[in-house]
């Protein structure tokens, strides 16, 4: 028996009929064709499938597609601006060589987005703790931590920018 799901993915509404057991990650990859969200472990350890559900980081291999019904989903494909400008976290991963094979990267970027949303200026330790739900085999995490620090700085600056303009100096 199929179930109707209606959800918003990267700002666009979408409706499908799915099996009750279809995992959200398979729905995103195989039905919606958004292959940027990866599968790395099947048991919710690696975080490669991390997406934002109503702004919170979740592992999409741990949810059914039907649980996404009525919710707002953001995947890695929705992070860059519509003109293609990379999100500051994406840019920071590039600038700091925060990826090698790139397979875990979308999950790390989504987890980092949620981390910085809750804690805009995390310490090294807070970043490591905040990303411990994601596994990387290539980087030893050194440049991932740097990338998140660098993104935090950029995003902090971007937020601060309008204020001096308002003073009229």
């Amino acid at each position: 028996m199929k179930h109707k799901v209606s959800l918003t993915i990267n700002g666009k509404g979408r409706e499908d009929e799915v099996e009750a057991r279809l995992l959200l990650v398979h729905y995103l990859r195989d039905v919606a064709g958004l292959t940027g969200t990866h599968i790395g472990c099947d048991t919710s350890q690696c975080g490669a499938c991390t997406i934002l559900l109503d702004g919170k980081a979740v592992k999409s291999c741990t949810l059914f597609a039907v649980q996404g019904d009525g919710h707002d989903v953001k995947t890695i494909e929705g992070m860059a601006a519509s003109d293609g400008t990379l999100h500051p976290i994406q840019q920071a991963f590039w600038d700091e060589h925060g990826l090698q094979c790139g397979y875990c990267t979308p999950g790390f970027i989504m987890a980092a987005a949620y981390l910085l949303d809750r804690n805009p200026d995390p310490s090294d330790e807070e970043i490591r703790k905040g990303l411990e739900g994601n596994l990387c085999r290539c980087t030893g995490y050194v440049n991932i931590v740097k990338a998140v620090q660098s993104a935090a700085q950029t995003m902090g600056r971007d937020q601060a920018r309008p204020q001096p303009a308002a003073t009229g100096e």
Partner: peptide, 19 residues
């Protein structure tokens, strides 16, 4: 020099086997 493969990989536009 920064890696030129990265823009696609950070954007979810990689082409891995299961894709």
């Amino acid at each position: 020099i920064h890696r030129r493969e990265d823009p696609r990989l950070v954007s979810g536009r990689g082409r891995y086997a299961d894709d």
